[in-house]
Design a protein around this nucleic acid. Sequence first.
DNA 1: TTGCCGATCGAACGCTTGTACGGTTCCGGT
DNA 2: ACCGGAACCGTACAAGCGTTCGATCGGCAA
Lengths: 216, 216
Amino acid sequence: MGDRPSYDRKLLQILRDAAGVFAEKGYHRASIRDISAATDVSLSGLYYYFSSKEELLFLVQNHCFGTLLARLEEDLGQTTDPAARLRIVVRNHLHFFLDNMEEMKVLSHEADVLTGKYRETIQRRKRSYADTVHGILSELRPADGPDLRTATFALFGMMNWIYTWYNPDRDLRAEEMEEELLHLFLNGFLAPRNRRSDGEGGDSAPMEHSSIWRSG
Amino acid sequence: MGDRPSYDRKLLQILRDAAGVFAEKGYHRASIRDISAATDVSLSGLYYYFSSKEELLFLVQNHCFGTLLARLEEDLGQTTDPAARLRIVVRNHLHFFLDNMEEMKVLSHEADVLTGKYRETIQRRKRSYADTVHGILSELRPADGPDLRTATFALFGMMNWIYTWYNPDRDLRAEEMEEELLHLFLNGFLAPRNRRSDGEGGDSAPMEHSSIWRSG
DNA sequence: TTGCCGATCGAACGCTTGTACGGTTCCGGT
DNA sequence: ACCGGAACCGTACAAGCGTTCGATCGGCAA
């Protein structure tokens, strides 16, 4: 960023307001005039801060994702233990998500409207983020454990779906949600797999589970 | 539906084609002209089959959701065992999702663009679907188990997020995905809670499950 | 004061959008 | 042969869209 504190502050405020409009109406249905109304900046005045509507969406997404990743990398530096690192990922993601739900909804929901260089930049960061989680899970994975790609995106699915149902008055706070989702995911991920029921070995598989573990 | 097989068949084809366009470009960015091109029906000719773009989206979503729920209720009639019923829910959802990814993407992604009666109808069905799953989970839930609302939507999140990453050439087929996600979710859902999930307990968890299952 | 420049604005332009309307084609029943 | 309605189409229009452009404001340096 350049050395113009007033400019930077106002741009960030525009990004926040624009995220609110995008989150409520969706990118395409939201007009620059809506954003002009939300920001109290004239229609043409906005174009001093971005050069196109698409760039505005990019700035919203990139700034949001950037601070999410910056906080994550800072916290991940504290430990190399994969279980602790997974907790850090979930904690960071959920806290940031619930604290910046509008921005994160835009980041999640308007994922494939960007084109060209904008799209590439965001997708590269997302892939890097997913790779980080994938790497942590590959260290945690028990022998014959779950499919890593499926598990990684299942975890992201749990977390990113939140914007469709979360109600701050009704639902858990970030710390509790962190416990719930980490408990759900980690126990499922680490649980031994009682594979093919044809093997009668049945060492650790409780018989009562049969209706679940067998297909039919 | 009325008794006009040709009309019905063509309408269903229009709904499929429209779902493809909506899935690719998003509802708002997709124009009726795009749908006209995709269906080989003239711009004004389309309005013989629906009265507005919003109604078209409603028809796409309602038909898609309707057949998903119809299949589910049929399969759920086979058993009252909650574990088996959960498997049926996951199997039905995933199979239908992967077989009709475009429609399901529209149903998931364009959830809050409908208004008025259209919106009410879809939301009522979605709530009923979620309530069904919520009910099954409440029967399965161990004492001091996970928060039911969070767990329900975590499961939906795992499944509905799929459209953002699934690649049929690269990823698991429906049956395998069913095993993976059910394993992940169910072991997490049933695992006893007191154990610290980031620590190293040493013992393997699933033994403690048996007491929960005895009543089955 | 004058001159400059970052910041801001009102007004317009060209284009796309969803939809309305009047007309035309097809076809089974009489 | 003729009719009525279902099925379908070409055209037009008003509204809204993103973006541009020239003008203006305010504060600081000369």
